[in-house]
Design a protein around this nucleic acid. Structure first.
Length: 554
RNA sequence: GCGCCCAUAGCUUAAUAGGAUAGAGCAUUUGACUACGAAUCAAAAGAUUAGAGGUUCGAUUCCUCUUGGGCGCGCCA
């Protein structure tokens, strides 16, 4: 939390400054706390003076000098001293008290895998529903679903760790045309296998898995009139989807069936009535239209078709009302970019229902294309041409697959090059990080044979950790919680991945220069051992939050 | 045609609300295992941030245009 500490302390200093110059400015000031550029003796820098100078119309240099003198005159707990940047732009360079680094390491050692949890203040805790994957049960998961799955899973873990209440949900579209076509596809394949001559239409599901299902049904010995093709097909496909997710070690708290909104409670009807009474619905060409344009959509949308059927959109509104009615304060949807055009209408609808626009957060990720043998393969379930997620996991492993996604910004398009992924798997950053833990554990194991090692944290002299490599490592450790906060703000776990790589880098450098187990220096050995233990704890928490397993040996 | 998104080193990419000299990894070149695991470390080289304007103390980031790519524009789901 080191950046947060510094930020808090700076806020106090700024208040002092503002009262000193009799400013009545009460605006919230957003300033950055950055790691200082290389080749300075300072640890962090802030642009606070520049930001303030803009608001008050004073020269940044003057503001900076005033703030710096307040910092240097007072005895602060986190900031040791401050100085103006070399070019005199108005940046304030900050040197921290090393004590806070040692203190933070002690926090890590005391709290172990709970470190960083519950740093959210009570009134900021949200009850979050996060919906992801939600692939239609019309075929196996492919690589694109894997990206959504990895993202949702990691984000959930991070938000939970920070102290939010999070529920993971999979929305299952088990209604509509596509289901009818799916059932008929299986039935046709079944009859084909029974020896009938059939013509298999082009717009039916072409995949091999449909034939597999039909085969299974034949083996069951049931007569054709005894078989519920829709039920059996969905059951089979769903089972496969669950298996794939299990392989990635991803479990959902809820499987929400679209049909449940229509069959039992008729929630769709209720929502439409409500919207109608609120005056948001009109009739045109014998269909019911929702005036989503009023809330920023490109055009109005149909809720009930002229043939009396509901549209997908109508049930989706009911679904989202259902989410909020269950008491969730924040609803997160993770969608592929092909759904981007759908955001405006859904946001319109939830506002009509009286919910805040911001309580629904939609995270888009760009679609994944796959390169195999230098050929690009686009994913299409209907045509049956795709590489399944299962194949990828088998080829490159579940940890590498997940990390491959989590290392990148979700908004960047990326081509999953199968050959490259396999080739790189040996030099993959995952192993770089995991190797840190292996080295940590190895040292800790070897230390068992040493005598007089101090184990009581309170008796260890952490001030012995003074080399450049030790300090850099300690600093990196103390940034962990700041990174988690950034992941929360940006809703993007890739900052954590990058942080772990950076931490690994600092650790390997430390490992090369600072021998831990020294026969002639028990106090230093003990202190360094605790540092190693701290690193191991953070690596373990971090990888766990990303959903990646960590072996003690490799 | 309209809308959303993307473009950074040969390749894969980073940059938290506009901050200082744009960070990494792979590949290339060089050096380090008689110190806790060399799946590592040290070093070299590699960038006009697609192009052109604009906004300002300051732009990869914001605005406009151009080029190249992805996705979406149903009474489908």
């Amino acid at each position: 939390m080191i950046k947060q500490y510094i930020r808090n302390e700076l806020s106090i200093v700024i208040k002092k400054y503002l009262s000193k110059i009799n400013s009545l400015n009460n605006d919230v000031i957003y300033f950055t706390v950055e790691i200082s550029p290389k080749n300075t003796e300072f640890d962090f820098s802030t642009n606070a003076a520049i930001i303030i100078s803009k608001k008050l119309n004073i020269k940044p240099k003057e503001v900076a000098l005033d703030i710096i003198s307040i910092i240097n005159e007072n005895n602060l707990s986190f900031i040791n001293k401050a100085k103006m940047d070399v070019n005199g732009i108005g940046f304030i360079n900050i040197k921290i008290n090393k004590e806070i680094l040692y203190k933070e390491l002690q926090n890590i050692l005391n709290q172990k895998n709970k470190y960083g949890s519950n740093i959210i203040k009570n009134h900021n805790i949200e009850n979050i529903l996060i919906e992801f994957v939600s692939a239609n049960p019309t075929g196996p998961l492919h690589i694109g679903h894997g990206r959504g799955a990895a993202l949702g899973n990691a984000l959930t873990k991070i938000l939970k760790h920070l102290g939010h209440k999070v529920t993971k949900e999979y929305y299952l579209n088990d209604v509509g045309n596509q289901m009818t076509i799916l059932a008929k596809s299986t039935e046709l394949r079944y009859r084909e296998l029974k020896g009938e001559k059939i013509i298999f239409p082009n717009d039916y599901y072409q995949g091999q898995y449909i034939i597999d299902i039909a085969n299974k049904l034949i083996l069951s010995g049931k007569k054709i009139y005894e078989i519920d093709f829709k039920y059996e097909t969905i059951k089979y496909i769903l089972n496969n989807i669950k298996n794939d997710l299990r392989k990635l070690n991803i479990q959902f708290d809820n499987w929400f069936y679209e049909s449940s909104l229509i069959n039992k409670k008729n929630e769709v009807n209720k929502v439409i009535t409500f919207l109608y009474n609120s005056g948001f619905i009109y009739i045109k060409n014998k269909a019911l239209w929702l005036s989503t344009k009023k809330f920023g959509d490109d055009k109005d949308r149909v809720l009930k078709k002229s043939n009396k059927e509901y549209t997908y959109f109508a049930t989706d509104i009911a679904y989202h009302k259902n989410k909020f009615d269950r008491g969730f304060t924040k609803v997160i949807n993770i969608w592929g970019a092909d759904h981007s055009g759908y955001i405006a209408r859904l946001k319109s609808a939830i506002q009509m229902l009286g919910f805040k626009k911001t309580s629904l957060k939609i995270i888009l990720y760009q679609l994944v294309s796959l390169i195999k043998n230098k050929q690009q393969i686009t994913m299409s379930t209907r045509s049956g041409k795709f590489i399944t997620l299962n194949q990828i996991i088998n080829d490159v492993g579940e940890n590498v697959t997940k990390f491959f996604f989590l290392l990148r910004n979700p908004m960047s398009q990326f081509e999953f090059n199968l050959e490259l992924a396999k080739k790189q798997s040996k030099e993959n950053p995952v192993f770089y990080i995991q190797y840190v833990n292996a080295r940590c554990k190895s040292i800790i194991n070897n230390s068992i044979n040493m005598h007089n090692i101090i184990k009581d944290i309170n008796k260890i002299n952490f001030k012995l950790l003074i080399t450049k490599e030790e300090i850099n490592l300690l600093k990196q450790l103390s940034l962990f919680c700041d990174i988690l906060k950034i992941c929360e703000i940006t809703m993007n776990p890739n900052h954590l991945s990058l942080y772990l790589i950076k931490l690994s880098d600092k650790y390997h450098k430390f490992y090369e220069t600072c021998k831990v187990l020294l026969n002639n220096n028990v106090p230093l050995t003990s202190a360094r051992l605790k540092l190693v233990e701290g690193v191991s704890i953070i690596i373990k928490i971090g990888l766990d939050l990303l959903g990646i397993e960590i072996p003690n040996k490799m």
